[in-house]
Amino acid sequence: MIPLDFLNITWISIILMIIGALGIIWLIKPIDKLIMFSVMEVGFLLVVVSFKYLDVALVIALFGPISTVTFLLSIIKINDIRKRNKNNLEGEIID
């Protein structure tokens, strides 16, 4: 058994997905999660490509950035809100 046998597309994609999933679950900071989400998505993309459905892969590739941007935006916004609320707690009035 040669270790390089594991370097076929199946195992790589599975490992990528599992790593991504575990990363999403164990890392608590949303930004880290976002990165791991991308890792998982790439793994899935690999699977789709290995199934030879290039059009599906195209759709995934198109929707990838959209979800990333949405996540990013809402993370930033929520951080913003929480900061404000904290300031508010200290008695500062925001107009």
């Binding site: 991504g20 999933a21 999403i24 679950i25 608590i28 976002l34 989400f37 998982m40 996540f71 993370i75």
Partner: peptide
């Protein structure tokens, strides 16, 4: 809730 939403993604 954001973390939870991320986890549903898995």
């Amino acid at each position: 809730p954001i973390v939870r939403t991320f986890n549903t993604e898995v």
